[in-house]
């Protein structure tokens, strides 16, 4: 029994890592700009598709394709902010909401046109399996978990220890006060979208390598990402990390010990139960 629990936890950590990265991107945008960026999932999957294209059609090694995809992700984030969200920044919230929905459909359509309707799996060549007692950990999953941890730590260091990170936090806390303190608030949305999209692209690459990317997959991940946001507490970085990990492990344990048929349902029931006890989420602040 203990081995099964540990194995299910390891299983859940990999997918949990993906949820964390998606949720961190969403929470950064939502916490600072107040935008529910629904297109985040589709853009993340674009990153996965791009990596697949670079590896299979251009012959790049995976380790070379990943930085190219991440850099493209940052650029794409900047474009999304400038062309889609900036024009409606001072308008009613419903405008940004509609833009987000439209952008989702547009990116899905672009993915379909550029990469086709077939599912794709990013070839990594990583097929070894490590065994620790009765627990097995595929090499690829181990690297995904490690990569997710590295990215999360890097993000935390950036936000907590750098001047730009402090400026982002200041704008999130109180935009007017940040202006008075001399923070260049005009550049913050650009930086936020760049980081957010790069994290999403990293998640898309992980999904493409571990599982597969196909049209419509991104929508499912963005729904899970918002669920993590609510579970962890809106706008909270530690909340997104805890929420994503909890959701991934809960799904895995629920499928293993209760029923695989209700895997998603059980995960969301847990989320509702948490919110009944802590309406602000696991690590959210009381309003």
């Amino acid at each position: 029994m203990l081995i099964e629990i540990l194995q299910q936890t390891i299983n859940g950590l990999a997918i949990g890592g993906v949820y964390v990265l998606i949720a961190l991107g969403l929470t950064t945008v939502f916490g600072i700009l107040g935008i529910a960026h629904f297109a985040h999932g589709s853009i993340s999957m674009f990153g996965g598709y791009l990596t697949f294209f670079l590896v299979t059609s251009q012959g790049l090694p995976v380790l070379a394709a990943i930085p190219v995809a991440l850099a493209t992700g940052i650029l794409l984030g900047l474009l999304v902010e400038m062309l889609a969200y900036r024009p409606v920044r001072h308008a009613n919230h419903i405008n940004a909401f509609i833009v987000a929905l439209g952008l989702t459909m547009m990116v899905e359509g672009i993915n379909l046109q550029l990469f086709g309707h077939e599912q794709v799996v990013i070839p990594t060549g990583l097929s070894r399996v490590f065994r620790f007692g009765g627990i097995t950990v595929p090499e690829l999953r181990l690297y995904v978990i490690i990569a997710a941890i590295v990215l999360v730590v890097a993000m935390m260091v950036f936000v907590e220890r750098t001047k730009t990170g402090q400026a982002i936090r200041a704008v999130a806390e109180n935009r007017d006060a940040a202006i008075l303190m001399g923070v260049n608030v005009k550049s913050i949305p650009l930086i936020v979208f760049g980081i957010s999209t790069a994290l999403g692209v990293a998640a898309g690459i992980m999904v493409g390598a571990l599982f597969a990317i196909a049209p419509g997959i991104g929508e499912g991940f963005v729904v899970k990402g918002f669920a993590v946001l609510i579970l962890g507490g809106l706008g909270s970085f530690p909340g997104a990390i805890l929420g994503g990990t909890v959701l991934g492990i809960t799904e895995s344990i629920a499928a293993g010990f209760i029923s695989s048929a209700y895997k998603d349902v059980i995960a969301f029931v847990v989320m509702i139960l948490v919110l009944l006890i802590r309406p602000q989420g696991l690590l959210g602040r009381t309003p």
Partner: peptide, 20 residues
């Protein structure tokens, strides 16, 4: 009798249960 849906790609929870 473990289940997956058309969109499921992570089968490790079900397989871990079956392995047990």
């Amino acid at each position: 009798r473990e289940v997956f849906s058309l969109r499921d790609r992570d089968m490790t929870p079900q397989l871990t249960k079956i392995r047990g």
